[in-house]
Simulated scan of single mutants.
Amino acid sequence: MSAFALTGEQRAYVRQVREVAVAELVPLAERGVEGTVNRPLLAAMGRHGLLARLFGGTGRSAAAMELCLLRETLAEVCTDAETALALQALGSYPFVLFGTDEIAARYSDGVAAGTVVASFALSEAEAGSDAAALALRAEPDGDGWRLTGEKTWISNAPEADVYTVFARTTPHARARGITAFVVPGDAAGLSGEHLDMLAPHALGRLTFDGVRVSAADVLGEVDGGFKVAMRTLDVLRPSVGAFAVGMAQAALDAALSHTTRRQAFGGPLSDQQAVSHLLAEMATRVAASRLLVYAAAAAHDAGEPPDQLTRQAAMAKLFATESAQYVVDTAIQLHGARALQRGHLLERLYRDVRAPRIYEGASEVQRTIIGRSLVQAEIARHENARADTRQEG
């Protein structure tokens, strides 16, 4: 049996999520307006307890494996629902993990019910992969701060009810000078606009014109916001891979269905060796991606050392998102022009699959994380070996 075979309880959970997605979430997603928050969809996910599964209890995020199963299953059926759930997790985990009891109590129940829309406001025009280069200013104002500047490519903006905002409290200190704040969506001086993106999800630009935040709105410690951001991303990174696995599985299923039914050159298209080899490569990449994602999630839930968790999560996200891009692209190639028609499953997946290779750490960043981790581990191994030799001598 595979080390990552699902238990009976997990398989039942996956079936339940799939049934809800097919029966109720897909129709709601289809009625939504592209590029905006679909509140009826969120409310339905709340009623069925899907959003509540983001939280493992007071002050805790969900178990990584459970989150991965939830995201993978939703992605196979309804990418809109998966994205809505993921953005709720991204926006709320900072105050669940680092907020005071008062902050968590103020927002968590609403996020779980789908009545409060949360957002993670980290990226800026000149601070994407280099998150430590933030320029949004938090200037002292009595016992609090005033936020001035812009954020862009922000999830659920400008419609969110609450934002986790990362701002610079100490100039020229890079990662050591960033603080995380909770900011209500209706705060005075906060405005925004939608962005028209390739994948039709709710993303926008925010403008902060002296937005007032208090000491009670700080998540974690002053100048400790970079830790809040990285911890949140570490928790979610394996599940980004799960999102990619779900999309890749949907594309593989579509390719198998099409090529075994499509008649060409005197028989099913799948009889062509070139086609069967492509299907084999697609299936192998999906299976390998799933194993990497499950391994990273299991390591997280088992409480393995942070450096190992970061490396495994980076490997899972890197391989799964890059593989999903390949699988979706190949499925389109096997379908031909019909897959490029607006509204076709693969046309939608083609737009959705591109972004995960960029957000929450681009593929190049993941390679840097993995390489640096490997080198540091090897250096530590050599130093420990030399120390052991000196003790023996």
Rank of each mutant, 00 (worst) to 15 (best):
A63P: 11
R205Q: 06
E102R: 15
A138Q: 08
D271M: 15
A248L: 09
E383M: 14
N384T: 10
E378T: 11
D329W: 04
A283M: 07
A167P: 09
L346T: 09
L349K: 10
T164H: 06
L292P: 01
A199C: 00
F4V: 06
V235S: 02
T330I: 05
R285M: 13
A302Q: 09
A339I: 04
G185N: 01
F120N: 08
A274Y: 02
Y163L: 09
L6Y: 12
E34I: 00
L42F: 07
L198F: 13
C78T: 02
A157Q: 09
A248S: 14
G303D: 10
V183N: 09
R354C: 08
A75D: 08
T73W: 02
H172G: 03
G266R: 01
R11W: 01
L147I: 13
L203I: 12
G35V: 08
A167T: 11
Y163F: 14
E193C: 09
I154L: 08
S363Q: 03
M247N: 03
L236R: 06
P184L: 09
L85F: 00
A21R: 01
P40C: 10
A135P: 00
V37C: 10
S61I: 06
V245K: 02
E82H: 02
I103P: 00
V275L: 05
R18S: 13
R311E: 14
T148K: 03
A63C: 04
S123H: 14
A295F: 01
A274Q: 10
E19W: 01
A44F: 07
Q263G: 04
A62N: 11
